[in-house]
Design a protein around this nucleic acid. Structure first.
Lengths: 206, 206
DNA sequence: TGCGATGCCGTACGCTGTACGATAGATTAA
DNA sequence: TTAATCTATCGTACAGCGTACGGCATCGCA
């Protein structure tokens, strides 16, 4: 019985009283939950549709197949990562870098499957702007910090890439290896490794 | 016609004149070629068996299903990575770190699918020894360097983890982001980023 | 009232991994 | 020599996947 009447209540009934955008959001949300809880291989079109009480093919109306669903999940992931890091760091201060870094790592450890999907997802080559990808806040902060120090022009751009890039590469290395279980030697000393890393690659040092 | 006579020639005929270990190697080799050329999703049991002219189920005699095949590919990959880095670096020298690093990155860029498989592959938790995983040479070299400086005991172990770990994390971050196409901003300046990274995290600096 | 547009989804096709069991050749025992 | 056993091979089948296709029910508008 498609498109009946409003039908405001009932778990799967919510579907009815939602517009197009909301329905896509519902699909992505269910997919993210499945991804977190049971891994990428559990995010099947059938499973997602089943959880929403709709036919498998219905989801194709709101999302461009499985590839499109992955793309939406990646987008949502970068948004969440970006917001989390933004909230946790304060512009330019050394403690700010550390706060942002911890937020970044927390996201990766809390959502390992999503994080992997985000960084395995092929990024279009014509996006010369690497700032995309959820790390805009980092670059913006570094920019502000350096501008406050009087830098500008090409030198500024170069320094931004060097410092923010370096910082981000280190963070991603930590996150990625932590997820893969490669940092077991630490015996719980992930904090130490992070501190050591920050000492060496913090955007404040030349 | 199983287990006929030697039959030394012919492409698929080689299969006959091979022992158990050699046949597994042949399977893994074909799988690695498929992985490099057409991605992980192309490494199907049927495709691998087909390339060897054997029935799909036959490969199960030599490899423990798809999971086992992945495991064998990962093993082969770490072996190759380890050898490449070992050959390219000379103990302790600053140029040595750089050579090893370049070899590491070259492997990752030349075999992105394999590299991803290697570092996505779940590592057993009871392998407290992270040295496993193809980076033993790095840790060994750092150890030698530090021992030559007179360090020993717990301080030595701690320094090894701090310095080699830091170095490796940076390398993996670079490799991983390069594969994902996240380093496009460089405009071909990957070397610059590597140099900057080496300046900051080389195992020689405290 | 009629009718095109829109959302829904049952069915079907080709693909996957792999469990099972039949078969055929090699090896060993009598 | 002959019979029994073992081993490698793989044809078949099943469940599950993504998704193309087409039929359907309902809505918005004329």
């Amino acid at each position: 019985m498609p498109r009946k009447t409003p039908k405001p209540t009932s778990a799967a009934g919510r579907w009815q009283s939602a517009d197009h955008a909301q329905r896509r959001t519902m699909i992505v949300k269910v997919a993210l939950k499945l991804l977190d809880e049971r891994g990428l291989s559990a995010v099947t079109m059938r499973a997602v549709a089943g959880k929403l009480g709709i036919g498998a093919m219905t989801s194709y109306t709101y999302v461009d197949g499985q590839g499109g669903l992955h793309r939406e999940m990646v987008r949502a992931g970068f948004e969440q990562l970006s917001q989390g890091c933004d909230a946790a760091s304060t512009l330019g201060t050394s403690a700010g870098w550390r706060g942002g870094a911890k937020a970044y790592l927390r996201f990766a450890v809390d959502h390992p499957n999503l994080y992997k999907l985000m960084f395995d997802y092929p990024m279009p080559d014509d996006d010369r702007d690497v700032l995309r990808g959820g790390i805009e806040p980092l670059f913006t902060k570094v920019r502000g910090r350096l501008e406050a120090q009087g830098l500008s022009g090409p030198a500024l751009e170069k320094q931004i890439i060097a410092r923010a890039g370096r910082f981000w590469i280190a963070l991603h290395g930590l996150a990625s290896l932590a997820i893969a279980g490669r940092l077991a030697v630490l015996d719980g000393g992930a904090d130490e490794l992070l501190d050591d890393m920050l000492r060496h690659v913090a955007p404040d040092s030349a």
